[in-house]
Amino acid sequence: MKHVAAKHAPARLITLGPEGTFSHEMALKMGLTKPEEIVLLPTIHGIVAAVARGEGDGIVPMENSEAGSVGETLDGLARHPLFITGEMYMPIHHNLASLVPLEKIRVIYAHPQTHEQCSDAIERWGVPVIHTSSNSSSALEAKKTPNAGALIPVIAAEIYHMPILVRNTENNAANTTRFVRISHAPVHDKMPEKCSILIDPDRDRSGLLHDLLEAFARRNINLTRIESRPSKRKIGEYVFFLDTSWSEKTADAIAELKTITGVKELGCYREIGVPE
């Protein structure tokens, strides 16, 4: 995988904390190590709001190969005037850590996405799970709770001095999370690799989804992802997030969509390579 060039790294990244989250690890992989260069906030909502205020660029998880999309990120992109300016991929490995042996663990702390990604192992252990706001919080809660374990990344185990009992507890060895870099301004790249848009239909009618997809199919543009999310206005009303491979015809397809329904362009961008 390509290494990110230093000139492309923003001077300040806002991402999910506390220290020891996969998001924090991704920020470190991008070459930022000084305290003032990485701002850790407890929620994705807070990150998105801070980026919208112009306080820096953000790094947020977009989707996971096992657990699917991250709803908070999609909702934030829909609610705020933000742009995706790059994407990064990270192999995700979870580990069971505890201050006591496995047979003495009576409760496991885990982030909901971590729980879903490690559901097979949790089922085998037969131990109750308590959800937390982050992988780092899982480590902190397990440290102060008798006979508790935590499902956490290696970086969190190292930071919070939690011995790892079982490594690689994820269901799928190819478990991967896609992160995106978000900014209050778009990038202007003449040859991006991917474009993302949000479609907010102004009315419900037969054939609408067909018309939306046909604008890309007719131009032989590949849709790499499509997902619906509740509009949050009323039951049964949805918005659609689309990722497309970039081509010289992509702008024409998006322009056609704007004549059909409401469209918000989230940006055209490249993958940012990061060290393994």
Rank of each mutant, 00 (worst) to 15 (best):
I130D: 08
A97E: 02
L99S: 11
R53A: 09
S98E: 00
P42S: 07
W125C: 09
R53F: 03
E103N: 13
T73W: 12
V100Y: 01
M62I: 07
T114A: 13
I44E: 03
G71P: 08
D120P: 13
G54Y: 05
A50H: 09
A49Q: 15
N64Q: 11
G86K: 12
I59K: 10
L96S: 08
T43E: 00
G71L: 12
V48R: 00
I44W: 04
M62W: 11
Y109Q: 01
P42G: 04
L96P: 05
T85V: 15
I47M: 03
A121V: 15
P112C: 04
N64G: 11
V129P: 10
I92H: 05
A49M: 06
P91Y: 07
N64D: 10
I108H: 05
R106S: 15
L74G: 00
R79E: 15
T85W: 07
E66M: 13
D57P: 06
G68V: 03
A49P: 02
I84P: 01
M62G: 04
A50G: 03
A97R: 04
M88E: 07
H111L: 09
V70R: 08
A121W: 12
H93E: 14
P128V: 03
D57G: 12
A67K: 10
W125E: 03
P81R: 07
Q113S: 12
I47S: 00
H115R: 13
H93P: 01
G58R: 01
V70I: 10
P128S: 08
I92M: 13
V60H: 05
C118D: 04
P81W: 06
S98Y: 01
A67W: 04
D120V: 15
M90I: 15
L74V: 07
H80C: 11
V107S: 01
Q117E: 15
A121K: 15
E72L: 07
E63I: 10
F83D: 00
I105S: 01
H80R: 13
E87D: 09
T85K: 07
A67F: 03
E63T: 14
A97V: 01
I108E: 09
G46E: 12
R79V: 11
E55D: 13
H111Q: 11
Y89Q: 13
A52G: 04
V70H: 11
C118F: 02
V48E: 02
E72Y: 09
M88S: 05
M88R: 06
A49K: 08
H80W: 09
T114N: 08
V129T: 13
A121P: 11
A50F: 06
G71A: 14
N95A: 02
E123G: 14
N64S: 14
I130L: 08
V70A: 01
A121Q: 14
Q117K: 13
T85M: 05
K104I: 00
R53T: 09
A50S: 14
Y109C: 05
G126V: 07
P42F: 00
H94N: 14
E116G: 09
G68M: 01
S98D: 00
P128E: 08
V51E: 10
H94Y: 15
H131A: 12
Y89N: 12
S119F: 12
I47H: 01
E103S: 14
I84T: 05
